[in-house]
Amino acid sequence: MTDAHGHLGTSARDVIGLSPEERIARMQSRRFTEYPRCRMVLDLLSDQVNQPSGVVKPNLLVWGESGQGKSTIMKKHLRDHPAVFDKQTGVRRAAVVGLEMPPMCDVKWFYIKLLSAIDAPVSESRSSLPVMADRVVALYRLMGVRQILVDEAHNMLMGSVRQQRMMLAVIRNLSNELGIPLVLFGIQDAREALMHDRQLTRRFRFIELPMWGAGAEFQALVGSILRSLPLRRPSPLTARALKTLLTRSDGGTAKLFETFIDLGIDAIRSGEERITPEMIKDYVSLPVLA
């Protein structure tokens, strides 16, 4: 006897018995779908966290165009390493802390973000930078933070050259003081910003999340997405349909996910319960929203 839902992944199988409305809602609230490149980055991040202290760990810059899933990977990594409160010592142990680079290249604002990321109260009045830096280091050490993730790292370019240099120095200092790796997520500009500092360039490893092109990796991604969609029938997609999708999404991950969700919703609403090449053709022929 063959499995009727053998084409689905575990998460999709769990919800396949639900009503169409509920399945649509689940699809729309999708948080994460794993694919090989993403898994590679996540494994790299996890390796960094799990390495014993004392080992020199290089910092990482995960860069790629907008919509390539950098923030999604960061959120997934944060979810995988939740903070746990230690009742014996009164300290919340957080191996990984994530924050977003402030929209301006402002060192003080960056320190405030670092403090807010761990829910530490921040003084509303004027407090000096050394005091804030000292508090950040002390609190992060107390909490046993082993990795700091910074999203939108390219925002550090939003300032004068002097401000940018200061920010790079702060990043370097933070990494040195705490002895933990920083993982920056950003677009290509972030990479260029880091290139300004020779010391930082030496300490960083760069991982690119490239735009998708036709090939086995793209097919693996599409396969992952299809397995995560709670459709009752398998979706037979041709090479031509895949190429059409690639062209439509411009090689962007987020756009590709959006397309498949729209197609999945259409499939459930129409009762087809699968995505066909014709549906893709029809979808592509629709005018793109500006």
Partner: peptide, 15 residues
């Protein structure tokens, strides 16, 4: 009794 009864809002609470 136990020192802590709820999850604190602050990350570090001096005992």
């Amino acid at each position: 009794g136990p020192l802590f009864t709820t999850e604190p809002g602050l990350p570090v609470v001096p005992l």
